[in-house]
Computed example of a mutant assay.
Amino acid sequence: MSVTYKAEPRRWPEPAAALRLIKPITWFPPMWAYLCGAVSAGVAVDGRWGLVLLGVILAGPVVCGMSQAANDWCDRHVDAINEPDRPIPSGRIPGRWGLWIALAMTVLSLAIGWQLGPWGFGATLVGVAAAWAYSAEPVRLKRSGLLGPGLVGLSYESLPWFTGAAVLSAGAPGWPVVIVAALYGIGAHGIMTLNDFKALQGDRQMGVNSLPVTLGPERAARVACWVMALPQLAVIGLLLLWGRPWHALAVAAVLAGQAAAMRVLLRDPEGRAPWYNGTGVMLYVSGMMVAAFAIRTLGVSP
């Protein structure tokens, strides 16, 4: 006679699962964008390294980590189909712990943002609101293949870039900073669209109308490539207009590298999307820093 023992459900989250919940791999883009903002502000960093470090921590581990925890909690039913080994559907983050972690990090985000002055706190409020609007009902902008990736792109690139410049300059950045930050945020819509390829099956079943679902993988990949490329072409044109030809040439070079990677992507969008997100995106963010250095002397508020 054999006896089967049923494992007791967890009461506390696994530490490793809690770390996976806030996805450290996703922290880099907003941290990098905040640094781009600090560079583009055109302000000496002497004596302000604490603001730079605190802003980088806020943009990456705290606000971005919070957004990932909120997204995983709100997506737990989709993840049970797409990736059942994730922390919440697998039970390693039991009960409502995913929600409590997201809420606690929301409070932490606001507390740290308060330390960055009115511009930093205001930007933190916007970032926190965007994170919940993207994932949570009844808003859940993630359901839209246009609004969802657009909101994430602006939140990951434009908002931290603007925040870094505003905090360092203690005021509103100049228009060149605002325009370039907005263009790179718009281009990031394409990156977010490619990121949606990994959830294609679950999104179809749960009614999430991502572009890969509504357009199909091939057309969605082509749209994503154009959305990434056109804002960078605009940046190149602006840098030429502003008298920065060498920086414009450098951005053009990284765009050419992306174009070569896009050709590989379009041969097999579903299979190559993760590869492109590791290859083409690094070129994309390299161009961001080049542009940040280009507009340093243009970015000071008048």
Rank of each mutant, 00 (worst) to 15 (best):
residue 182 A to H: 02
residue 58 L to E: 09
residue 189 H to N: 09
residue 182 A to T: 14
residue 165 A to K: 03
residue 211 L to D: 11
residue 63 V to K: 04
residue 107 V to F: 12
residue 201 Q to I: 12
residue 214 T to D: 10
residue 178 V to D: 01
residue 245 P to N: 08
residue 298 L to Y: 06
residue 248 A to Q: 09
residue 159 L to A: 09
residue 72 D to P: 01
residue 243 G to T: 15
residue 116 L to I: 07
residue 291 A to S: 14
residue 6 K to N: 10
residue 291 A to V: 01
residue 43 V to A: 12
residue 193 T to I: 13
residue 264 V to H: 11
residue 132 W to H: 02
residue 31 M to L: 13
residue 223 V to D: 07
residue 22 I to M: 14
residue 241 L to P: 00
residue 5 Y to R: 13
residue 153 G to F: 04
residue 85 D to Q: 14
residue 249 L to K: 01
residue 265 L to S: 03
residue 217 P to F: 07
residue 178 V to C: 06
residue 143 R to Q: 09
residue 161 W to A: 15
residue 156 Y to H: 06
residue 70 A to M: 08
residue 2 S to T: 14
residue 135 S to D: 03
residue 202 G to L: 07
residue 45 V to Y: 10
residue 295 I to P: 05
residue 2 S to I: 09
residue 274 P to R: 09
residue 250 A to Q: 11
residue 284 Y to M: 05
residue 262 M to E: 10
residue 189 H to V: 12
residue 226 W to V: 06
residue 192 M to L: 14
residue 33 A to D: 06
residue 169 S to A: 15
residue 16 A to D: 06
residue 45 V to Q: 13
residue 296 R to P: 04
residue 286 S to G: 11
residue 277 N to R: 14
residue 238 L to G: 06
residue 174 G to D: 14
residue 185 G to V: 13
residue 125 L to K: 02
residue 203 D to L: 05
residue 199 A to S: 14
residue 2 S to Q: 10
residue 58 L to S: 08
residue 87 P to V: 07
residue 239 L to M: 11
residue 176 P to W: 11
residue 59 A to N: 05
residue 241 L to Y: 12
residue 225 C to F: 07
residue 90 S to A: 13
residue 79 D to S: 01
residue 112 I to W: 04
residue 267 R to N: 06
residue 73 W to D: 01
residue 137 E to F: 06
residue 258 Q to N: 09
residue 103 L to Q: 13
residue 53 L to E: 11
residue 145 G to R: 02
residue 81 I to L: 12
residue 124 T to R: 03
residue 216 G to Q: 04
residue 109 S to A: 12
residue 265 L to E: 04
residue 191 I to K: 04
residue 15 P to L: 10
residue 189 H to I: 13
residue 194 L to A: 10
residue 84 P to L: 02
residue 127 G to A: 15
residue 125 L to P: 01
residue 234 A to V: 15
residue 144 S to E: 03
residue 34 Y to I: 05
residue 246 W to Y: 14
residue 71 N to R: 08
residue 59 A to M: 10
residue 107 V to S: 10
residue 279 T to G: 00
residue 140 R to H: 11
residue 244 R to C: 14
residue 47 G to M: 08
residue 278 G to D: 12
residue 103 L to W: 08
residue 24 P to N: 08
residue 209 N to V: 03
residue 147 L to Y: 12
residue 12 W to M: 15
residue 51 L to G: 04
residue 158 S to P: 02
residue 8 E to P: 00
residue 155 S to K: 02
residue 60 G to E: 01
residue 37 G to F: 05
residue 283 L to T: 05
residue 292 A to K: 01
residue 125 L to H: 05
residue 175 W to T: 14
residue 274 P to F: 12
residue 278 G to N: 13
residue 153 G to R: 06
residue 34 Y to C: 09
residue 243 G to L: 14
residue 65 G to V: 07
residue 110 L to C: 13
residue 89 P to R: 03
residue 255 L to E: 13
residue 223 V to S: 01
residue 180 V to K: 00
residue 29 P to A: 01
residue 120 G to Q: 06
residue 159 L to M: 11
residue 142 K to T: 00
residue 257 G to H: 05
residue 213 V to C: 05
residue 188 A to N: 11
residue 89 P to C: 08
residue 116 L to H: 08
residue 80 A to Y: 02
residue 138 P to G: 06
residue 185 G to T: 12
residue 120 G to D: 07
residue 101 I to Y: 00
